[in-house]
Amino acid sequence: MKKIFTTLFIFISTLSISQPNTDGFLVFYNAKFNNQFGRGNDFREYQGKLIIQGNQSLFTMKEKGNIIPLDDKFNIDVSPDSLFTVYKDAESSSLIFDFSDINQQILYFADTLHPMQWILTQEKKMIDQITCLKAHTQFKGRDYIAWYAPSIPIDNGPWKLGGLPGLILEAYDAEDDWHLVCTSLKPTSNNTFLFYEKIILKGLEGYEAYTDYMQKIFRRIKSTLATSQTGDCLTCENKSVIKLHTWEKIY
């Protein structure tokens, strides 16, 4: 595996020297994500895939194997096929993330490309024979740690993370609810992102619109709970609690 990876890396490095702007890369990550982040444990395994073609890239994270639902009849799982899906275009400084709401309708919103302020360290480790350096940052309410490869001069990474002087080969949050490690890096070509290019041309609302949308759903459920508490039992006491858990902090 390591030999194949090294050979591929040398091959990619050679290609990147000879054709710096036309190469494509396909980066695979082993990923785990705790679907009950912040309140329990429901870790599932995913495969992260980062397709890089020129200035554009697309990240997806799809669940591996069969879903084993929690042994709890009070859980409704409406998770989309891919989590943390993000399209980036460095040329236009665009970032699009998709969001599958509870009716599984996919909505697209824009966000800032790589706004995070990284703190770089000299701490090193090898990921599949590639020397990586450690960096950390705080982004939308969470602390993230990234291991990037200065030898692969691509300032990209999984999900919204990026902006480091090298490709991110490993990333995780401080609570370790989300963790990705690169498993392979392959050359690729002829990837097109016409679908996302069209979305950009149509115009998109930003992160604020996304948070407004989330809060709207939250308020609607909350008001339903409030009205359902007006019963005819004078001696009864009631208390309803509704909590919204979001991976990115809602402002």
């Binding site: 989590l83 599958s100 989330m214 309803s240 858990h245 990115e248």
Partner: peptide
């Protein structure tokens, strides 16, 4: 107390209803 969760991956809604009666 009855509790229900709607999980949509990167967000979830947790609803808890507690009632006391005779």
């Amino acid at each position: 107390t009855l509790k229900g969760v709607v999980n949509a991956g990167v967000f979830s809604v947790e609803i808890s209803c507690t009632n006391s009666a005779e």
